[in-house]
Design a binder for these strands. Structure first.
Lengths: 183, 183
DNA sequence: TGAGTAATTGGATGCGGTCTAACAATACCC
DNA sequence: GGGTATTGTTAGACCGCATCCAATTACTCA
C-alpha cells in the first residue's frame, strides 16, 4: 500500500475516533508510521485528505468548461457536472459527509464546502459569461449549479447507496434550476 | 478613537502597502501601538478585520430568517437580504473588494466569500425548507440568493459609488432569480 | 481616596504549514 | 556488477495564526 493510502486511512480512522480538530497531523503520521514531513509530500493540508478527490474532479471540470469556449450551452455544462460526481463512491469525503457529526466536522465542512462551491461556481460563471451573459446573472447561475452538485453529493452520501448513483440525484437537482420562482 | 478602530485602520493601511499575506498580526498591532494580545480582544482572526461587518449583518439576517418561521415567502426573504446590504458603505470589506489585487487578496477572498456565501445560503435554505420545500431545491434557492447578494456587493464595491446604493444592484440581481433557464 | 471593574499586556503553548539539506532506496545504463 | 540519476523519506529549523492565563494597568464611581 502506498504511503498516501496509508496516510489517508490513518487520518480517517483518527477523525472517526477523536474528531477532526482533536487529530493533529503528527497524530496521523505517527499512526501511519511515517514522518511528519512525509505527510506534506502527499497532501497539501490536513483537510486535503478529505477533499483532494473532489478537488481533482473540479480541476478537470474547470478545464472542460474552459474548453467549451463561447459555444457552451446549459446542456454542455450539465454534462460536465455529471462527470464530476460520476463514480465518486470510495472517497474519504463521502465518509466524512456520512459521519460529519462523529468527526466533529460540522463547522469545518461548512468552511470547506463553501470554498469548493464558490470555486466551481466561478468556473461555471466564467463559462456562462463567455457566452455573453451578464456578470451577476452568470454568478447566480454558477452558484445555483454548484449548489446543486454539492447538495446532491451531500444528500447522496448521507443516504449511503440507497439513492443509487449520485448522477441520478444530481439530474433531479439540475432539473430544479430554470424555474426557481419563489413568490 | 477606540482600539478597535485603530487596529482596523492600521490593518487596512498595511494590507494596501504590502498585501494581506505579507502583513502579520504583529505588524498590525505594532503600527496601531498596542500589544499583539489586544488584537484578539477585538478581532477573532486576521481576516475578521475585513469580514466582521458583513458577518454581523449575516448573523442578524439569519435571526430574521429564523423569525419568519414557516410563513416566510420569497418576498420576505428578499426584504431581509436588502437589509444586509443597506448602508454598507464605509467598511473594510468594501475597501478590500475594491483593491483586492493590490492587497494580493484574490485567493483569500475566494476562500472567505465562499464561507459567507454558504453560511448565508444555509440560512435561506433553512427558511425555505421550513415552508415544506424539498431539501436540495431549498439549497439551490439559498445558494442563488446568497450569490446574488455577494455578487451584487462585489460589483457595487468595484464600481465605487457609481452604481448608487447596493440595494438597487441587489434588486436587479434578485429579479434574475426565478427564471434561470439556460438551454 | 479606595474599591471594584474593564482594558491591556507579556508570555507560554500548540498547531498548521513551508523550507532545506541530507539520507535511503530504487531503477537505469554501460 | 558498478556507478549514477531519480525518487522517496527524513529530521529539524522556522514562521505565523490562534488560544489561554495570570498579572498589571487604567478607569469609574461611590
Amino acid at each position: 500500500m502506498s504511503s498516501r493510502e496509508t496516510l489517508a486511512e490513518a487520518a480517517c480512522e483518527l477523525f472517526l475516533e477523536r474528531g477532526y480538530d482533536a487529530t493533529s497531523v503528527a497524530d496521523i503520521t505517527q499512526r501511519a508510521g511515517v514522518s511528519r514531513s512525509s505527510f506534506f509530500n502527499y497532501f497539501s493540508s490536513k483537510s486535503d485528505v478529505l477533499w483532494s478527490g473532489l478537488d481533482a474532479r473540479i480541476v478537470r471540470a474547470t478545464e472542460s468548461l474552459i474548453a467549451l469556449g463561447s459555444g457552451g450551452d446549459g446542456a454542455a455544462v450539465r454534462a460536465v457536472l455529471r462527470e464530476v460526481v460520476a463514480d465518486f463512491a470510495p472517497d474519504p469525503l463521502a465518509l466524512a459527509l456520512r459521519n460529519r457529526s462523529a468527526m466533529g466536522l460540522d463547522e469545518e465542512l461548512i468552511r470547506d464546502t463553501g470554498v469548493r462551491q464558490v470555486r466551481l461556481a466561478g468556473a461555471i460563471s466564467d463559462a456562462a459569461r463567455s457566452t455573453g451573459m451578464d456578470e451577476i446573472r452568470a454568478d447566480i447561475i454558477g452558484a445555483a449549479h454548484a449548489a446543486a452538485l454539492l447538495s446532491s453529493l451531500r444528500v447522496w452520501a448521507e443516504h449511503g447507496a440507497g439513492f443509487g448513483a449520485p448522477e441520478s440525484v444530481l439530474d433531479g437537482a439540475l432539473r430544479d434550476i430554470g424555474d426557481l420562482n419563489w413568490t
